[in-house]
Design a protein around this nucleic acid. Sequence first.
DNA 1: CTTGACACAGAACAAGCGTTCGGTTATCAT
DNA 2: ATGATAACCGAACGCTTGTTCTGTGTCAAG
Lengths: 226, 226
Amino acid sequence: MMMMVRKSKGLGERHQKILEFIEEYQRKFKHPPSIREIGEDCSISSTSVVNYYLDQLEKSGHIERDRKISRGVRLTAPSSLGDMFRVPVLGVIQAGEPIPVPSNADFGSFTAEDSVEIAMSLMPAKEKGKELFALQVQGESMIDAMVNDGDIVILKPTQDARNGDMVAVWLSDRNETTLKFFFKEKDKFRLQPANPTMKPIYIDKRESLEIKGKVVMVIRKVERYN
Amino acid sequence: MMMMVRKSKGLGERHQKILEFIEEYQRKFKHPPSIREIGEDCSISSTSVVNYYLDQLEKSGHIERDRKISRGVRLTAPSSLGDMFRVPVLGVIQAGEPIPVPSNADFGSFTAEDSVEIAMSLMPAKEKGKELFALQVQGESMIDAMVNDGDIVILKPTQDARNGDMVAVWLSDRNETTLKFFFKEKDKFRLQPANPTMKPIYIDKRESLEIKGKVVMVIRKVERYN
DNA sequence: CTTGACACAGAACAAGCGTTCGGTTATCAT
DNA sequence: ATGATAACCGAACGCTTGTTCTGTGTCAAG
């Protein structure tokens, strides 16, 4: 017997609206809204109707409720809880294989398991609110960019880079993915390794060079001891 | 004229107790306590007295209050808000200068400005709840340990390291601070740079070698573009 | 001794808020 | 037609909770 498939309908328009409002309100006022406030925002005139929807959202696991307590609503998945930043880890980046491209569909629907939380205070101001994604570095192919095996690099998706940016590029001619510093020169691109003892790679402008994103942050967990 | 020094007395016993209770309650129930609950925990029979203290804590900037709203108390500095980890940045680490040692007094009293927040999910499980500290790397002297200028390294204070650990050591003979991989050999220590093209440093066991801590995590903010 | 601040108690009040209950409307399969 | 169900409204109820007011004891400065 096939497992019953969850009705793909999922959440109605009202449910969505309520969830969004709770999230927005929480971020704005640092505490959950009351039932009446939710009703007002969502054009629901009766508190009982809000309660009605809240019950459903609770059963479907989207929110948790502290009955008997004022404003006892809270999102189960605090996706953007104040000063945190959730970035999806889309996969691994390793030489010789294409890196997963972030399709727009990927954002918005990722679970906690494959995402990392970054404190706002650690983010460059310009990148807040942007659609960032993260990749875990596999292998030592990126070592010349001061990035080690196992590191997590956080990237901003972009096609063009400025001189000096650290970028993730896909060299289809060489069938290689790599992290390098990017410089545009007269009729070619220079991909400069971080390690000064290593020579830069020159790419003719006609050769294919796909910039996947620029590196915004590098996180390294050192737990190599046991 | 000297600036007026803040009364060192600071918080009374009651104030401390209340702050601790709010923090504990928040972590436990995911929402702030009511005035009456605070009073009950702190053996204050009157709600007005709790309100009295809350007013003081608000004026002194320890908490924020949403008047008119139930349970509208919240700590201004969410020091351990669920899945976050606050690590004090004690200073900078650079070659030629001693790194600041974390004295026990330093923990517990550090402000938000000189500390970084790390998501629990990013921490190696073993280090949770430990007394960690962070240093900002200045200069490129640590570049051989895959650590760049401006990086933030998070360290666990310890005097002894195991083979393969990345440690911060103070070599008083050379008057130098450095980040290296640590290996104990027959009658000497080997400090191995991360960059394989660079030769290791050998330190005789009689020479002074002070391990300040082992690196648990490295964070690099890349914002070198403008 | 008086005064005033500070720390506290207790009670009463009013507003906020979740809950509940009785209705209403519309859709839809029977 | 009919009954079931989902989506909604409005009002009333009552508990929770912050606020406020009056009052008490202490202690140090005047």
